[in-house]
Design a protein around this nucleic acid. Structure first.
Lengths: 243, 243
DNA sequence: GCCTCATCTTGACAGTCGTCAAGGTTTTCT
DNA sequence: AGAAAACCTTGACGACTGTCAAGATGAGGC
């Protein structure tokens, strides 16, 4: 009756692959259950789903560390498991396959990353303040989270070869574009001048700058961070139309 | 006496790993050879070196095709050999290991790529002409050589993980930066205004734009090429200081 | 307390990987 | 022509890969 406990992909639910066992899916097939038993079962299965999703997140988090250290090409499931507190079998229990795991990692990454500058956007009172804080924030994450950033570029490039990565990667890329646009448009508003470039161009510019700086930083150039900071400060002004 | 025919890495020669057999290296150890015999031997070994380098180039070319189709993570030496007209053993005859092969590919790529716009730079008579031709050229190679470009981004990202890739990748990236700068500085000169950004920023901007467009193109957006073209045309004017 | 099911470990499978050695084939030199 | 060296093929090795099944372990509901 019950699948003996392996993760499986739910056709309808593209996200967290639907809880432990197929309990939530099975409910609809059940016949004649009392109202109270039904709601009881709901409560239970929801708890199970939560636990399942929690461990998935925990494993994805751990996998992110390994991936960011080795890169996609050199990371095996066994290596990921070894850097977690579980054995390699668990991965196949919580993820249908490697792609499923990697995608969970990508989504986990997004959660960490995408709201990074919203605080700055919300609190900055002048265009200059926003510009300086943004530049400093970029330089800081370049230095602090270099490994994670290179993983993002790695996975994004993988999506150019692996169609199964495309959808999720594209979605994150778009939310990064929106993140950048919140900054640029707010900067333009504070400066009292319209933006000089559309959202996708603004994102491409900062993404290109950041990637170049990351390359320099990871090849041992310790000035890459402050250089990026200066570049961003000088560039921001050019992204709004001066009167 | 003679190594039985395997490729080996020469400490002094970082490039094509020094010819067939160790002949060129052995000459210095020889004692008492007549002048004519020496020059004769030179002629011979040079021909052998040429042949050796030729086949290396041929194999690297073939490998580039496979790599650009599958990406670094999914390309094996056996797959590369299968897409060439040789067996998998030859690769180990002409290349010391996988890294050696990949680096040969990267250098091969550079030869194809780096002078792409020099013709345009040399013949354009006005700033507008240069701008339009450059934008059209970028859009064209985006469509025609998409697979090769994604491989470049793949390998460049690999260099963030693999230190053995760093030197060669950095060198190519710098010559790409110079390529872009030849265009921008010539554009500025024709426009009669100084460039608004330094070389590294200019390169980062176009690289970012191109990479975003490549992502869109490879995910099925058939407008990516013409969008890139329009973006570049609009952006070029902003890269020189208007009076 | 038992019983059930979720969870996790262990071990194994069929492949594939990079590498290398032995030997056959072709080219080159004398 | 014969010898030597260069070139290429074949087959194998140990290690590693993703995946999966069988079973141990543990917690929760009755």
């Amino acid at each position: 009756m019950t699948i003996h406990g392996r993760a499986y992909r739910l056709g309808s639910d593209p996200q967290a692959a639907g809880g432990p066992r197929q309990l939530p899916a099975r409910q609809t097939e059940e016949f004649a259950v009392t109202q109270v038993a039904q709601s009881n079962r709901d409560r239970i299965s929801r708890r199970q789903v939560d636990k399942f999703a929690e461990r998935r997140a925990q494993l994805a988090d751990s996998a992110l560390l390994t991936l960011s250290e080795l890169g996609y090409a050199r990371t095996s499931l066994r290596e990921i498991a070894q850097n977690s507190e579980f054995s390699h079998g668990v991965l196949h229990y919580y993820f249908t396959d490697k792609v499923d795991l990697i995608m969970a990692c990508v989504r986990q990454y997004k959660a960490h990353c995408v709201t990074r500058y919203d605080q700055i956007v919300a609190t900055s009172r002048t265009a200059d303040e926003l510009k300086l804080e943004f530049a400093a924030g970029l330089a800081n994450t370049l230095r602090e989270d270099a490994a994670m950033h290179r993983l993002w570029y790695d996975l994004r490039t993988q999506s150019m070869f692996e169609p199964s990565f495309q959808a999720d990667v594209a979605e994150i890329d778009q939310s990064l574009e929106r993140m950048i646009w919140r900054i640029v448009s707010q900067f333009a508003e504070l400066a009292g001048a319209p933006p000089a470039v559309p959202p996708d161009v603004a994102y491409a510019i900062f993404d290109g700058l950041f990637q170049q700086s990351l390359l320099k930083h990871l090849s041992g150039n310790s000035e890459a961070g402050s250089e990026l900071q200066a570049q961003v400060e000088q560039l921001m002004d050019k992204l709004v139309l001066s009167s």
